[in-house]
Structure formats: structure tokens, C-alpha cells
Design a protein around this nucleic acid. Sequence first.
DNA 1: GTACACTATATGCCATGGCAACTAACTTGA
DNA 2: TCAAGTTAGTTGCCATGGCATATAGTGTAC
Lengths: 159, 159
Amino acid sequence: MATNLSDETAGLPGFFADLVRCETRLYNALNDRLRERHGIVTSQFEFLCYLRDHPGSRVADLAAEFAVGVGATSKGADRLERRGWVVRQPNPSDRRSSLLALTHDGSELVDAAKKTFASALAELLGDTLDGSSDSAAAVRVISKLRSKLERNQVGMPTG
Amino acid sequence: MATNLSDETAGLPGFFADLVRCETRLYNALNDRLRERHGIVTSQFEFLCYLRDHPGSRVADLAAEFAVGVGATSKGADRLERRGWVVRQPNPSDRRSSLLALTHDGSELVDAAKKTFASALAELLGDTLDGSSDSAAAVRVISKLRSKLERNQVGMPTG
DNA sequence: GTACACTATATGCCATGGCAACTAACTTGA
DNA sequence: TCAAGTTAGTTGCCATGGCATATAGTGTAC
């Protein structure tokens, strides 16, 4: 049921299909773990991580990073703010936008969730992404592809 | 903005982030092309392709293949059926389920969309996924990861 | 300084997916 | 054969994202 020869040799479309299937299943599995232990899902975890590493980001910065619409990003920030993990601080140099930052609770949440996230990932793809040279090559290729897509602004939603 | 050293060396979490970003942007870009030229999005294209290769599949088969809920799959099939690309035929060996198949129009749509899809993909990742040994390794790793996740039924939604 | 274009965000409407009933049909065991 | 348990699918409710629009603030040309 899983794969057949024609899938394996389908070239770029086959690779894309494999990539999407991996992403879907990993995302779903991580959602389960994070929801169960911390009451958040993976997309929220990623928002919070980004804000931890880039405090003072604006909504547009998050939208560009994750390639989602600005509207959706604004709503996502609302939800995190309502739960007390994020604050919107006035932007002294542009009153149209706010600077987003983690609260103390948000910070602690990220620290705890990072552990869950890392251990879940290790379990999910630990023995497939080991130290082999194939693994290292895969990491390089995916990283390079990401850089290229971002550089060319591929796949940015309209709003 | 794109990447920094800490992202590149973050191990499994960094790889996961790159993977998700690639998938999001590729999916968005392919949506644009397919919608513009054929009035469908990538998820619909994938459903139709699967039905072309596996006529007589049931809703549950599609749900398992794409790791989406059975409810969502049923609605997705509705939409394709309403547009005249898919038919539900009675399953002679189990009256609870139907056998899904492409109509003539659906078949022609897939044939046309496959061309769009392949050329868009070639343009999007052609020079990153060339014939290099890194690329070949990446294809192998992602394919293996997919097989493992499917074998272990990782990330299947509840309903 | 003021009209005009532009930008950042927020909000509303719609489409889609998850999950939880619910229904119908199948299977099993006595 | 029929009751109890299981399975397949549909549907409703809710959450989230895309896109279009609205609003407010910024920059610029004159």
C-alpha cells in the first residue's frame, strides 16, 4: 500500500509527494504531543519560538517567515495574546504596527515545549535521520531549497 | 532574514523547520499555478491523481493515503463529484461504502494538470534537485522517512 | 500644510480540516 | 437468526487560513 515502483521513480513529482506526506504526518504527530502536554499546536509553537529568538518582531515579519497571510498572522497573534503568552507593545517608530514579544509565561511555555518538541522529533525521525552521509546530504538539500524559495519569495500568500 | 547559523545547526528541529517551510511555499506556489490554469488546488490534484492510479478506491483509502480525516475526505470527494470529475459507484461487496472513480472529464483534467504540475515543479526545484549525489541522497532519505511514518501509522487524524 | 499615494494591521466572509455524533451495514457468537 | 459489537461514511460544529476590504498612520510633492 505504501509505495510502488512507479512512485519511487516518478522524479520530482514523486519527491514532492513524499515531502508532503512526511510533513503532514510529522506535523500531525507533533500537534498531538504538544496539545496533550502544553495545550498548543505546532504552528503556535513555531510562532512562539520565533518570537523568543526575534523579540520585537512585527506581524509582517512573522507572516514573511512562515509564508502565511498577514491577516491569519494577526489572528494568530490575537489568540496567543488572549492566552497571555504574547504582548503587543507600541512601536515607537511607527504607530501603525506593534512590536510582539513573549510574556514571562510565554517564555516558560516555549522552554518546556522545546523539550517535548525535540524529544518527539528524535523519536519520530531519529533513526532515519542519523549521522549517515545520506542524512547529512538531505539536510543540506532541504536547507538549500528553503533558502532558494525564500530568496525568490516563492509561495507567499496575497494577504 | 532567511537563515542564520543557529537555524542551520539546530539539528532535527532545524531540519523540520526547513522541511515545513519548503512544503508550505511549494504547496502555495503550485496552488497558484493549478488554480489559474485548471481551477483546482494541489490537494484536489493529488486526490484526482490517486484515483487515476487507483480507481475503485474508497473514502477510507484516500484518507489513509493522505493522512487526513475521513470526514474531510468525504467532503473533498463531494466537491469533486459536484464538479463532475468523480463518481461514487455502489460497492458490490459492501453497501456501506462506495467505489470512487474518475469521470471522463476528470481523466482529461488530470492529464492536463499533470503537465502543469510537472513543469511548475521542474521550475521550482529543478536546479536544486538536479542529478547531484546530494539530491539523490535527499530523495532516498525522504522516501525512506515517508515509508517509515506510514508503516508506523504516524500522524493519522482521528476522524 | 495638505492632498495623495503607500504601508501595516485588523476584520469579515468564505472554504477547508479536525473531531464528534449519528446512521447504515457488516460480523460474530451463542 | 438475532443481539451486540464493529466498521464505513456522512454531517454538524468549531477552529484556522486566504483574500478582500476597511482603518489608521506614514511619507512626499507641491
